[in-house]
Amino acid sequence: MSDDGTILDISALRLRRGLREVLRGVTMRVRRGELVALMGLSGGGKTTVLRAVAALEPFDGGTIDVGGVVLRAGALPPRSVAKELRKRVGMVFQLHSLFEHLTVLENVTLAPIQVAHVPAAAARARATELLESLGVAHRASALPRELSGGEAQRVAIARAMAMEPPLLLMDEPTASLDPARRGELGETLVELTRGGRTLVVTTHDDDFARAFAQRAVILADGEVVEEGEARAVLTNPRHPATRRLLQG
């Protein structure tokens, strides 16, 4: 971890899919305890940035430094590096991707038991605590298919939080929620940052970003076109892409 409190340092990140350049040199920094909204129109590369940071996708140029674990261009990192990375980064997917064959409680305890080797009883207690704090403890024995969109999302957050990663990536968490639920989610996320956790959240929703994010980073055509304090950037946009985003 750098001395200035940077937990995520992305530098000149380039990523190509076939002939298309999805990311053309993305550079951004996130400090510990921040809630950063990564914004932009669809196809701008927001999700790809998260996937690269989570080492789900190899990239073609630049570096990603997550609290001292450095990912470089080329193939996906070896198991030893990936293992260190996983301790630092958790991810909540847009479609939640809860394990369909496991109950809510089993979804949350799987990694603590299998990866962190926490005793099963302790893992269950901790999972129940997490589910309680997120308001879904009553669904502990339900299967993912039985959950509403909002419930599934909170379970997915609990599942990622159970491994206590200092950095949590969330892909479009507001997409499947109605405005009232978005507010609840925002408060939950702010609550998480109070304990020193860092969140990078992709979203289309500028109201949400203005209300809850400290900083906004705007991506357009694979580049960062504007960034700064969320309320300022989203109230007085300077770049045309940001303006288009606010009109949409």
């Binding site: 989570a54 789900l56 198991r79 293992k83 996983r86 301790k87 980064v89 958790g90 991810m91 997917f93 479609l95 991707s97 809860l98 394990f99 369909e100 799987l110 990694a111 299998q114 990866v115 962190a116 599942r159 990622a160 491994m163």
Partner: peptide, 18 residues
């Protein structure tokens, strides 16, 4: 098996065998 299921498991730190 959907790719999302595998990626979710990987981000949680499970090895490929797990």
């Amino acid at each position: 098996v959907p790719r999302g299921q595998l990626e979710a498991a990987r981000t949680l730190g499970l090895s490929e065998l797990q």
